[in-house]
Simulated scan of single mutants.
Amino acid sequence: MTIVVTTPTGHVGSRVVRLLVQAGVRPRVLVRDPARLDEATRARVDVRRGDLTDAGFVREAAAGARTVFWVDPTPHAAADPIEASLRTAAPLVEAARVGDVGRVVLLSSIGAEKRHGVGHIDALAGIEEQLDATGADVLHLRCAYFFTNLLLDLEGLSRGVLTTAFDPDRPMPWVDPRDIGDVVAARLLNDTWQGRVVQAVHGPEDLTFRQVARILTQALGRTIRIDPVGDDEVRDALRAAGMPPSAVEGIVGMTAGSRDLVPEQPRDLLTTTPTPLSGWAHARLRPLLER
């Protein structure tokens, strides 16, 4: 069984690689800089060095694989993020279409089911549709809002401020990326599923940003208050940072398009993962802020 893992040093990919290795599998990892893998991991994986934006590299590295775990590497700040995401995934889609790849597990997102109007998430919807059309076995994991998104504003949290453009009183699912990695690894190791499968990964509970602030206050040992901002404020800040218009709208759209979202799949045994935000914040976020 040949399993290809993209972004193997990311929050999700690193967990997937570790679990596959512990299961006795030698995964093929596609990585730009092998030095980012620790020495013990490098000795237990098949390293293919290259850039996921290089179509030739992706086709060659994925050829003959039973399953590919695909994580879109396109940064939200890309000049045209939706176009870049679709272009980057094109070699994988073609490999699946011609049979060079048997199965694909896609790290998608809640909101992709809307198909349009959710900013950069629209690219994941497009990749889902293109993979569906190949006839290969495909699994779309539609994941909730990552705990690790809180790491994007450590400076604000260090000042006791949690800034958000989401409705601070609307519950939404939150998830630990390590738990996503557990689901991914289980699916990669299960060789029986077929056809088109969609599975949400919701995390243990839906939380409002006000609830998140209270949880962080207790877990971090410091008062965290909410600072709600509007879409135009976010646009102004992103433009001031030098981001191109399509990137700005791709970022703003992910929030704006998700405000009325009801996930396609409900919370149940299949979609719910265990790690609470409080435990993650105490173990992962608190040490970073205390430094």
Rank of each mutant, 00 (worst) to 15 (best):
D268H: 14
S85I: 14
V25N: 05
K114S: 13
D232M: 02
D46P: 12
E249P: 06
R170G: 04
D176Y: 14
L277F: 10
T134C: 09
L289E: 06
P177R: 02
E205K: 06
R267C: 12
R97V: 06
D191F: 12
L37Q: 08
R97D: 04
A63E: 14
I180W: 01
L150W: 03
V161M: 02
A213W: 06
L288K: 08
H116C: 13
P171V: 00
E39V: 15
A96C: 04
G99R: 10
S246E: 15
V25R: 13
G181Q: 02
R159M: 00
A43M: 11
E264A: 15
R170N: 02
A89G: 11
D100K: 12
T6H: 01
P34M: 06
G111P: 08
R142K: 11
V183N: 08
F57K: 06
P263G: 03
D72H: 01
E129K: 10
A40L: 14
A185Q: 09
I226F: 02
R48M: 05
I180C: 01
L131W: 07
T2F: 07
T67D: 02
E233F: 10
V93F: 02
E94I: 00
L37I: 05
T148E: 01
Q194G: 15
Y145T: 14
E39Q: 14
P73A: 05
L216M: 07
L20G: 02
R214C: 04
P27G: 07
L189K: 10
I127N: 07
V71G: 00
V248F: 04
F146A: 05
P34K: 06
V98F: 06
T67L: 04
T223Y: 05
D206C: 12
R170F: 02
A62L: 05
D236I: 00
A133K: 10
A84E: 12
E290N: 07
G257P: 09
D51P: 08
L216Y: 07
R159W: 07
A213Y: 03
T134N: 00
G221N: 07
V197C: 07
G253N: 09
A84Q: 13
D46E: 15
R225M: 03
L152R: 11
I215P: 04
W193L: 04
T134L: 10
T134W: 09
S278Y: 11
R44E: 15
D38R: 13
N190M: 05
D46R: 12
H282N: 09
L150H: 08
I226Q: 00
Q211Y: 13
A84K: 10
L270M: 13
G10W: 11
A40R: 15
E129Y: 09
A247N: 01
D80N: 14
